[in-house]
Design a protein around this nucleic acid. Sequence first.
DNA 1: AATGTTTCGTGATTTATTTCACGATAAAAT
DNA 2: ATTTTATCGTGAAATAAATCACGAAACATT
Lengths: 215, 215
Amino acid sequence: MLKKTDKRKVSKSTISRLFVYLREVSKLANLNIRTISSAELAERVNLGAAQIRKDLGYFGHFGVSGSGYDIKELERALKRILEKNKNCRVAIVGCGNLGTALISYGGFQKQGVEIAAAFDTDPKKIGKKYGGIPVQPLDKMPGAIKAKKITIGIITVPAQNAREAVDCLVDSGIKCILNFAPVGLMVPEDVTVKDVDLSREIETLSYFVDNNVVG
Amino acid sequence: MLKKTDKRKVSKSTISRLFVYLREVSKLANLNIRTISSAELAERVNLGAAQIRKDLGYFGHFGVSGSGYDIKELERALKRILEKNKNCRVAIVGCGNLGTALISYGGFQKQGVEIAAAFDTDPKKIGKKYGGIPVQPLDKMPGAIKAKKITIGIITVPAQNAREAVDCLVDSGIKCILNFAPVGLMVPEDVTVKDVDLSREIETLSYFVDNNVVG
DNA sequence: AATGTTTCGTGATTTATTTCACGATAAAAT
DNA sequence: ATTTTATCGTGAAATAAATCACGAAACATT
């Protein structure tokens, strides 16, 4: 059994951490550091050494006993593992502060995620450009999504407009949605919604701070 | 054993979900709906019914067999459980798009989280106001944080400035940091950092989309 | 070359979280 | 009043995730 490409066993958290490793390793590569041990890398990314080794272990043998991981090589390996999302194009729905923050964040292209379209209902915003992307009205969505082969929709509208945004995305054929609006969205069975709830993060953190149970 | 206030057993995810329940229940209360079953609530928030019942079970008995939860009552109970963060004040470090998105997001006050100060290094931004909060330079931070009794720092600066931001927060006595910069931050042992990595969320989602393993 | 040291890779163990399943309880119906 | 139905609360079971711990492999030193 040479190949360990049994994806069913690799958890979402593992994949998510691989992106962290890649980012850190790329940084180290630029500093011309040659090798790093799982323990050192672990310290840099605030995770356990065993966890790093285990995560990498799902995809192959990238380290060398006694001396650790060759940074260039590990970087290459991680890119290869994660490069599958090379052609991922996303649409932003809602060009408020959060939406434009995502559009103007430059780090996506590096990982192969391209923001290919932006939408808003506000007539004053239509036609404006953020990061080179023109803002379009919602009724242009189905066409634009098909034309640009967009596979992920990102909802960054206020809560009260989320329903409209999600319906429009679903009608445009999107099966995968990242939702920043603080509401539960009901969608057809074949559509996946991943909620990212910024206020909840802060609220939850604050709960534990006040109860002195952080750690 | 009447009180079930054994906080050690309540997980972070449970608390996080309680905020979701509260939000949904408040919405239902405004619609003048009287009661709801765990199954109905579960559907609305995309979670399991048993999970809702279990989460609530850590804090008491709020439901009625056969008819479900009284919405007003449940809302009151959830507010009481979560109100402990009533006096939570946070500082935003970095007034770019993401920082201002958080400042201008109105939902925090409802949950008792107050954005009490904002900082940035850019001289052009100093003195400006976002959502009524004036932007201050970093050297004003230690004083402002003590004066306003701020307990949480939120880092919304670009990756390359995160180090400076976190050092400044730690020097100001902050023990709890929510970090939106896509870098691992090394902090003293008694400081907690919770990372929220927006690009990673998208990247991870896109990985699973492309590999057809979403679900 | 032999010995000591470092560090990986991974099965086994532990811990955490979710889901199941069912007894108990209360409302609704007959 | 009795039966039926709905639904909670929760211990037990299942699943998922993180951590441990140790053999094996490679390097470093003498």
